[in-house]
Structure formats: structure tokens, C-alpha cells
């Protein structure tokens, strides 16, 4: 497998891997906050929401091919997958801003 292919394959799953980590982290913060009665629970959740979106934004903006290389099917698919991961992050994590955390 060529280097460009490998890079594209890693990029293809990078966005959604970060999304998964963010998903688990938010689920854990929600549960821990309720269990220990954190006073700034909501603020922590919203903070984690923003933090988890930063790498997703970076990936979605990133070029999936190096300068001077032609775009391949794989690099285009990777670009779309990373944009989809960003959209999934924005939408799936959005409830932290308004939904009851512990009832």
C-alpha cells in the first residue's frame, strides 16, 4: 500500500474516531457530574462540547492530499467523512446545551 493511500485511509477514519472519543467523554462527564453533584456541571459539559469540536473542525478544513498530488477517490471520501464527523459532532452533542442532565 502506498504512502498516500495509507494517509488517506487514516484520514478516512480520523474524524469519526475523534467523534467517538468525544461521544464517550461527554457521556462519562454527564454521568460523573450527576453522581458527584458537580455545581458547574452544565458549564463543564458545554466546555467539553466545544473542545471536542475543535479537532473535528481542524480535520474538516484540512486538505486530504499533499500539495502537488492529485485528489484520489480515497482522499475525497476522507474529506467527506471528516466533514460528516464534524456535522455529527455538532448535532449529536448539541443537547448538552439545553437538556436536563440528571433527570
Amino acid at each position: 500500500m502506498s504512502g498516500a493511500n495509507q494517509r488517506a485511509l487514516v484520514l478516512l477514519v480520523a474524524g469519526f474516531t475523534i467523534w467517538s472519543v468525544g461521544f464517550v467523554a461527554l457521556y462519562a462527564l454527564q454521568a460523573l457530574g450527576c453522581a458527584f453533584g458537580w455545581p458547574q456541571h452544565r458549564a463543564i459539559l458545554i466546555g467539553a462540547y466545544v473542545v471536542s469540536l475543535l479537532p473535528l473542525i481542524w480535520l474538516a478544513m484540512m486538505k486530504t492530499v499533499r500539495e502537488g498530488e492529485p485528489a484520489t477517490s480515497l482522499s475525497v471520501a476522507a474529506l467527506w467523512a471528516n466533514r460528516a464527523a464534524l456535522a455529527s459532532g455538532v448535532l449529536v452533542f448539541l443537547p448538552v446545551t439545553f437538556v436536563s442532565a440528571c433527570i
Partner: peptide, 18 residues
């Protein structure tokens, strides 16, 4: 999907035993 899920979450909030 965004509208439906949002509406369902708002409805869910109203139904919670708050």
C-alpha cells in the same frame, strides 16, 4: 431530522418528572 429530534427533546423535557 433536526426539527423532529429537537421537538422530541423539548417534549421529553416537558414530560420529565421535574
Amino acid at each position: 431530522l433536526v426539527l423532529l429530534t429537537g421537538a422530541a427533546l423539548v417534549l421529553g423535557e416537558q414530560l420529565l418528572p421535574k
